[in-house]
Computed example of a mutant assay.
Amino acid sequence: MARSFADYRPRSGIEWTKTIPFGRRIFDFYPSQGDLVVPAAGLTIPNTEDGPITISRYRRLEINGPFTKQKRDRGWCVLCDDLILGAGARPNMAGKGAAGSPKWAVQDIAIPRAITLSGHRTQYDDFAAWLRENCYAIFDPSLFACPLPGTGDVTANYKDWPASGPVIVSAAGCGSTTARVYGGCHGYGSAIGVNGPTGYAGVNAPGGGGGGGNILQPATNAQGDGNSATVGTTGSAALPWSGGIRGLQGVYTNYTGSSYPFSTSTGDRDGDPYSTIASSRPGGILIVLVRNSVTAIAGHLLSANATTDGVVAAGHGAGRVFLGYGGALTGTLNMAATGGAAGAYCGHGGAGAVTAKTLAEMGWA
């Protein structure tokens, strides 16, 4: 179970500020769990639903089967010294898009070259130990914009991070659905009896917009959701989702012609307000950073696809896949971020973005 600062002994003291070099030093900040071989049967990592971006740190990582998280959350960053992707390797965040919160930070996700922390009662060493023990990503801006209960009083200059390091997820590049969307990233209901449009693809962002819904049957109407791992805040009453930066929940048009969201919170929601189908969700965020070499055997796949039951709650936007490596790449990488298929009442979800870069291209010389 995740520890809070109630488990540590608070210390009083003077106000402190500490700037820590980061960037490529992320490999040293988190202790390695040693070598890991993921078998063909696969491995699922436990996590907190809708929790922070988390870190999995290994020396030599060999993947031969499905490798994923148990629940949806803001993202997964896998760190390793060397990576071998076997023919059956399936590292993925399929259907793991977070539900979102209006309190989360609305900005790019970046790994800054340096991080400045400040605190008083919570000392830096205790805070760093807490991060490492719980595998929380220090570069998750929402960890500071919306602190977890018991986090302590440490603050960070997270608003400065996008300008000081490689941007992994762009807040400006999410997929939309149609010209009718007021700047949001979700599906709107279309004309009566006609399925909604396909969500457009994201660009360096957590996924495409969801497909629009069919308002012929509003009780079972489904709109695709975009990924909302670092969602924007709700917009104004006049334009309900004008503030939508990333893929937000769908809305549908009722018989009077007015549009409204299914709830007042941003983030991923099944478009059908009566739906509890857990197998239909937007894709999540998968970040893989390799200090040295990558060996990619034909047949592998890194993915952040949307999942769908193929009937009602479909058309969700895909997620985001990013892989950075410092040494040689042997073989050809195969990555995908595919939107959910159109269902009985919903258009196809938009595609997400996939990127592979060397650490030098990321600015980590």
Rank of each mutant, 00 (worst) to 15 (best):
I45H: 10
L359T: 07
G350Q: 07
P10I: 01
A313C: 11
S259M: 09
L43E: 08
T54Y: 00
G23W: 03
N195M: 10
P218K: 13
P21E: 11
S265N: 15
L216C: 03
V231M: 07
A145N: 14
K103N: 10
I84A: 05
M93W: 03
G184L: 06
Y260Q: 12
D309H: 10
D126I: 05
G211C: 13
T44Y: 09
W241Q: 08
D153V: 06
R180F: 12
D81G: 09
R320I: 03
G267T: 04
G326C: 09
I277E: 11
E62I: 13
P282I: 03
R11P: 01
D268C: 10
G331W: 00
Q33N: 14
H186F: 14
F5H: 12
G208N: 06
E133D: 14
Y255V: 13
D225I: 03
M93F: 09
D50L: 10
Q223F: 04
G317R: 03
Y345T: 13
S56Y: 03
A137T: 02
R9F: 02
G97M: 08
W241R: 08
G243H: 13
A344C: 00
K18A: 06
K96Y: 08
G213H: 02
Q223M: 09
A105W: 04
L61R: 05
P149I: 02
T276N: 14
T233N: 12
V311H: 09
S279R: 12
G226E: 02
T276R: 15
S4A: 11
A163Q: 14
C346V: 15
A328L: 09
G243Q: 13
E133M: 09
Y30W: 13
M93H: 08
T253G: 05
M362A: 13
S170C: 12
A356M: 06
I215L: 11
I245S: 10
F144V: 07
T358G: 07
F29G: 02
R59E: 15
A94R: 12
Y325T: 07
V78N: 01
R74Y: 01
G187V: 08
R90I: 03
I26A: 10
K103P: 01
C146L: 08
I45M: 13
A328R: 15
T122G: 02
H316D: 15
G331F: 06
N214K: 09
P141G: 12
D140F: 03
S293T: 15
C174Q: 04
N214V: 00
F127E: 02
V181S: 07
G340F: 06
P10D: 00
Y124N: 04
A94G: 11
Q249T: 11
L248A: 06
K96L: 15
T308G: 15
Q33D: 15
A201W: 01
S236N: 14
F144G: 05
M1K: 13
G343F: 00
I84K: 08
P52H: 08
N134G: 03
I192S: 11
A145L: 08
D140Y: 01
A191F: 12
P91R: 04
C135Q: 13
P218L: 15
G271T: 08
G100R: 05
G340D: 07
A40D: 10
N292R: 15
H300A: 08
L323N: 00
A156N: 04
S293I: 02
I287R: 04
T266D: 02
A87F: 02
G213M: 01
D268N: 11
I84Q: 05
H120W: 00
P52W: 04
A344L: 12
G95N: 10
T48D: 11
